[in-house]
């Protein structure tokens, strides 16, 4: 018989993030569909966990377990791994479901190793077929999708963000069993956070639109000159007006390291593609970007795609976008900004 443990950590304010709520709805459904499985067990990790447990009180879980303490108010491998391992040992699940947050992506593979389990990450679908849990996950950086199942237990599943609906439900009062942990001595001190670039808030995971800027923005234009300052203004104005999330090609962000003139607000964290991110937005607009395969694999989860490029033969025109405007992105985006400014 399968038993499902849902693991979550709190955010710094004690709440639960959206990825955690998405993983919860997936875990609840999994426990429900597995014939004869007991109701879901919830394991919480954080500085304080009661408020988060209360927020989930109405979800139908059979049991709440928690590990709380000052060490767990921050994200750190040694303390997180100890806490998660203690919860797994206490709950003895066959399936462990969690969101692929940066914190759990760091800690849970090691926990899985510690408790002798197996792990799959990047999970985008969960199903139960004839009592058999199955997952879908991607290989080769979103090039191919596999459906698989496995015999080993416990089986850890880290769920990709944006792939499941977020759980919504009544709060209440949850009775949390405190699970004791021997906190290991740690040699790591978490100091704080910092933005990746001065304008890092141009990365907006919740935005409807992804706006990708390619290296063409900094290249010589028809007059034989680059127009980097204009490019910067135009892009900035657009992402702010449209509240779009800003993405980049690798060539554009790499220019910093190669000593070329760059867009000041771009960092490697903006990079979309094979060695960048695979964001989830309903729409995407690529500008001055050639649409090469290593870039476009990062668009796997962008449903509607448009591009502006001077070159009709660019990758976007070869079946990678729904619409390719063969035009000068400086001209088009200046006009778009004007129209957005009018309304």
């Amino acid at each position: 018989m399968e038993t499902v443990l849902y693991l979550t950590h709190t955010e710094s304010d004690g709440s639960l993030g959206k990825p955690a709520l998405e993983a919860l709805s997936a875990a609840l459904q999994l426990a429900q569909e597995l014939d004869g499985a007991p109701p879901l067990t919830i394991g919480l990790i954080g500085g304080e966990v009661q408020a988060a447990a209360d927020a989930l009180a109405g979800c139908g879980a059979g049991r709440f377990m928690g590990v709380a303490g000052a060490e767990l108010a921050v994200s750190r491998y040694s303390s997180d791994a100890a806490a998660a391992a203690a919860l797994v040992e206490a709950a003895q699940p066959t399936l462990v479901v969690a969101a692929a947050t940066s914190r759990f992506s760091r800690a849970l593979p090691g926990v899985c190793q510690r408790v002798g389990g197996r792990i799959d990450t990047q999970v985008t679908e969960l199903q139960v077929v004839d009592t058999e849990p199955r997952i879908e996950r991607w290989y080769y950086r979103q090039r191919m999708a596999a459906t698989l199942t496995r015999s080993q237990r416990p089986w850890f599943l880290l769920l990709a963000g944006g792939a499941f609906p977020a759980w919504e439900g009544e709060a209440g009062t949850a009775e949390v069993e405190a699970v004791p942990v021997d906190m290991p001595e740690t040699r790591t001190r978490v100091v704080g956070t910092q933005s990746a670039s001065a304008d890092a808030h141009t990365i907006r995971p919740e935005a409807d639109l992804l706006f990708v800027a390619g290296a063409g923005w900094t290249k010589k234009q028809v007059d034989g000159q680059p127009h980097v300052t204009e490019a910067e203004q135009c892009i900035r104005e657009f992402v702010d007006a449209a509240q779009a999330s800003l993405g980049s090609s690798k060539s554009l962000v790499d220019q910093g390291g190669e000593g070329q003139q760059v867009l000041s607000f771009m960092s490697h964290l903006h990079q979309v593609g094979q060695t960048g991110t695979t964001p989830r937005h309903r729409k995407g607009l690529a500008t001055c970007c050639h649409g090469e395969e290593p870039h476009v694999v990062g668009w796997r989860f962008i449903t509607e795609r448009r591009a502006i490029n001077l070159d009709a033969g660019c990758g976007w025109g070869q079946g990678k976008a729904d619409v390719l405007y063969v035009a000068d992105a400086f001209d088009v985006m200046t006009k778009v900004n004007e129209l957005l400014g009018e309304s």
Partner: peptide
């Protein structure tokens, strides 16, 4: 211990509308 039931490359080809001279 892993049983792969299916491995597929998703349909990538879109029917691109190429807009010139607009």
């Amino acid at each position: 211990g892993v049983k792969f039931l299916d491995v597929t490359v998703p349909r990538q080809q879109r029917d691109t509308r190429i807009v010139r001279d607009m």
